[in-house]
């Protein structure tokens, strides 16, 4: 039973300047007895999300809208489990894949095949399972013989195609996206849109941050608006 429950979630980002980052300075401050005051100085806190209550269950297609810096990305990352709430709690049931950055962990020196295994491992797949899927991935990406060459020799488009093919090989329970992905040239784009739609349809919960009302209209059945980290409407 896939489920997300956010209960009064707040996220504060500490902003450290170089003083706050230095152990030496901290010790010096403590030694000279000015710890409290200086602590304030080197320790600015930015509230990125405040008091978020949100419940999502199977079938929910949530669109997250709001201005730049409203906290959309932070919300996606809290749902992905990257940031733990500073206060409040979040419970997530189900396997999450986020397509916020589909390149993450890929390495230019390694060959296409090696990158498939590496990226696959980061997505949480077992080696044996990836072995079975390698041909599908390579074929879908349309990389051809380049697959045995280092990734750095690929064109940007090819890298994207490969990254996309790996990231979308298996629909997760919860899919998290920052804007709708578009990759590659016209031919590939059509194939990619088809694949993306397929995994969106197959995943039980979708959370997508976007600026496009048309997209919300098309794929979402719920919308929330964030303003300065707070929920405006559900």
């Amino acid at each position: 039973m896939t489920h997300i429950l956010m209960d009064n979630v707040c996220v504060d980002f500490p902003i450290y300047n170089t003083t706050g980052r230095s152990l030496k300075n901290r010790i010096m401050q403590a030694a000279t007895g000015s710890f409290m005051g200086s602590n304030e100085q080197g320790h600015v806190v930015v509230r990125a999300l405040q008091n978020i209550f949100l419940e999502l269950s199977e079938g929910d297609r949530l669109g997250v809208v709001g201005h730049n810096g409203a906290g959309k990305s932070t919300l996606l990352r809290v749902i992905s489990g990257v940031y733990e709430p500073t206060s409040g709690s979040i419970k997530v049931k189900g396997r999450i894949t986020n397509l916020i950055d589909i390149h993450i962990g890929m390495d230019g020196e390694l060959t296409g095949i090696e990158n498939i295994y590496l990226r696959g491992a980061l997505l949480g797949f077992k080696r044996a399972w990836i072995s079975k899927k390698v041909n599908d991935i390579v074929e879908f990406a349309g990389i051809g013989d380049f697959i045995d060459m280092p990734l750095r020799t690929y064109s940007t488009g090819m890298q994207l195609r490969l990254a996309f093919s790996i990231a979308t090989i298996q629909p997760p329970d919860i899919l998290v996206m920052d804007e709708w992905l578009t990759v590659g040239d016209a031919d590939f784009q059509e194939k990619a849109q088809h694949r993306l739609k397929e995994i969106v349809d197959k995943s039980s919960i979708l959370v997508i941050a976007t600026h496009s009302p048309a997209l919300v209209e098309k794929v979402c059945n719920r919308t929330i608006r964030l303003e300065r980290g707070a929920l405006m409407s559900t």
């Binding site: 992905s80 489990g81 962990g105």
Partner: peptide, 9 residues
């Protein structure tokens, strides 16, 4: 950093 900030491991 880049992995930690993107993927929950």
């Amino acid at each position: 950093e880049s992995i930690i900030k993107q993927i929950s491991l």
